[in-house]
C-alpha cells in the first residue's frame, strides 16, 4: 500500500485529541505500515508538538514557517501538494479545519476523497470498505473507496478509539527546505483574527442538570414550557443548533461541536435527533433521557432512557407532576 500520512492538528503546543485517533485509523488501513505524521507550524511550539507526535508515529515530517502560525487551509493545501508523494493516503479529522482543507486537497492530489468515515471494515485489494452516515445519522452506508491513485480520508472525531500507547520513537525530519524551495505560495485568503464566542447569562458548562431542547419544539412560543420544566427540576436550559440559528436562544446555550462542551450529571434531550455534532458536545457520560416522537431517532441509540412522545404534550404534564411531587 502507498504511504500513509496523518495531518496533525495542534494548538498552544498541544496535540489535538484527534491525532491519536488518526494513528489508530492508519493502523487499521494497514497494520504493517509506518504512518507518517505531518506537522506544520511556526517556531516556538512546533518543536514541542513534533516531539510529542514522535511518541505516537513512526516518522514526523515537520514544516516550519511564520505563515503557518495560524492553520490556514489555503496556505497549507498547496504546500501539501508539494510535499506529499504521488498516490499518498492522507488522514485528517472531519471538523472545521479538515472540512476546509480536505476536499480541495483531494482534487489537487488527483486522489479519491472519502469524507467523514466512522469505521473501516478492511481492504479488498486496493479498495477500502468504510462506513459513513447519512441523513443526520438516521442511516449508515457501506462505501467502497478506490485507494490506488491515492486518497484523502477524513475521520469523524471520536469515532476511532485513540491509540494512546505512545510507544514510538519516531524520527523527526525537517521538510521545510524541500517545501519552500519554490518560496511561499501566493495566498488568496489572509487570516485576520479570531473572535471568541460571547459569554451568556448562564454558563451551561458548569450545569449539573440540563434540559436541552431541539427543533422538535416547533415554535418559539413553545419554549416557555421548557423553561417551566427546567424551573421545576432546578435545571438549566440548553439547546441544539437550530434553536440558536432561529435566534430563539443565545449561542452560549448551544451544546455541540460548534457550541459548548457540557458535562452534566443528567441530560434531558427534548425533540433533539442526536446528530454527532450535537452529541460531540456532551462529555462525562451523563444519565441521558431522550423524548422524541420518532422511535427511530438516533438519539435513542445513545440515551439511557427513552420516551416516545410528542414533547408539546408530554412536557407540560411532566412539569405538572414534578411540581406536585415537590409539594
Amino acid at each position: 500500500m502507498a504511504q500513509i500520512f496523518a495531518y496533525i492538528l495542534h494548538k498552544d503546543g498541544v496535540l489535538d485529541d484527534t491525532a491519536l485517533e488518526l494513528r489508530a485509523a492508519g493502523a487499521t488501513l494497514d497494520p504493517e505500515a509506518a504512518v507518517t505524521a505531518v506537522v506544520t507550524g511556526s517556531a516556538g511550539d512546533l518543536e514541542k508538538v513534533c516531539k510529542e507526535a514522535a511518541r505516537s508515529f513512526d516518522t514526523v515530517w515537520k514544516v516550519e514557517n511564520d505563515a503557518l502560525a495560524y492553520p490556514n487551509a489555503e496556505v497549507i493545501r498547496p504546500l501539501m501538494k508539494r510535499l506529499l508523494p504521488k498516490n499518498s493516503l492522507v488522514l485528517l479529522p472531519h471538523e472545521h479545519f479538515g472540512m476546509d482543507l480536505a476536499p480541495g486537497l483531494s482534487v489537487a492530489l488527483e486522489a479519491a476523497y472519502l469524507p467523514d468515515s466512522v469505521a473501516f471494515e478492511g481492504m479488498e485489494g486496493d479498495v477500502l470498505k468504510a462506513v459513513r452516515e447519512e441523513y443526520s445519522g438516521m442511516v449508515r452506508t457501506h462505501v467502497r473507496c478506490n485507494l490506488s491513485t491515492g486518497a484523502v480520508i477524513t475521520l469523524r472525531p471520536g469515532a476511532f478509539a485513540p491509540d494512546e500507547r505512545k510507544d514510538k520513537t519516531g524520527e523527526i525530519m525537517d521538510k521545510t527546505p524541500e517545501v519552500f524551495q519554490e518560496g511561499l505560495p501566493e495566498v488568496p485568503r489572509r487570516y485576520l483574527e479570531m473572535v471568541e464566542a460571547e459569554a451568556g447569562d448562564v454558563d451551561i458548562t458548569k450545569s449539573e442538570v440540563l434540559v436541552s431542547v431541539g427543533r422538535g419544539i416547533e415554535e418559539q412560543d413553545n419554549l416557555e414550557m421548557i423553561q417551566e420544566l427546567a424551573k421545576a427540576m432546578g435545571a438549566d436550559v440548553s439547546c441544539s443548533r437550530p434553536i440558536v440559528d432561529a435566534k430563539w436562544m443565545e449561542k452560549s446555550r448551544q451544546v455541540g461541536t460548534s457550541g459548548k462542551t457540557v458535562k452534566p450529571k443528567v441530560y434531558l434531550a427534548l425533540g433533539i435527533s442526536g446528530s454527532f455534532q450535537h452529541l460531540g458536545g456532551i462529555k462525562g457520560s451523563p444519565f441521558m433521557v431522550a423524548v422524541n416522537k420518532n422511535p427511530k431517532a438516533p438519539i435513542f441509540q445513545v440515551a439511557d432512557v427513552g420516551v416516545v412522545a410528542d414533547i408539546l404534550d408530554f412536557v407540560p404534564n411532566l412539569t405538572e407532576k414534578i411540581a406536585e411531587s415537590a409539594k
Binding site: H96, F97, Y191, L192, M194, V195, A197, K251, S258
Partner: peptide, 11 residues
C-alpha cells in the same frame, strides 16, 4: 470554528 468561535479572514 470550534466552540462557536469565529475566525475572520479576507478572501
Amino acid at each position: 470554528i470550534a466552540g462557536g468561535n469565529q475566525e475572520f479572514s479576507e478572501i
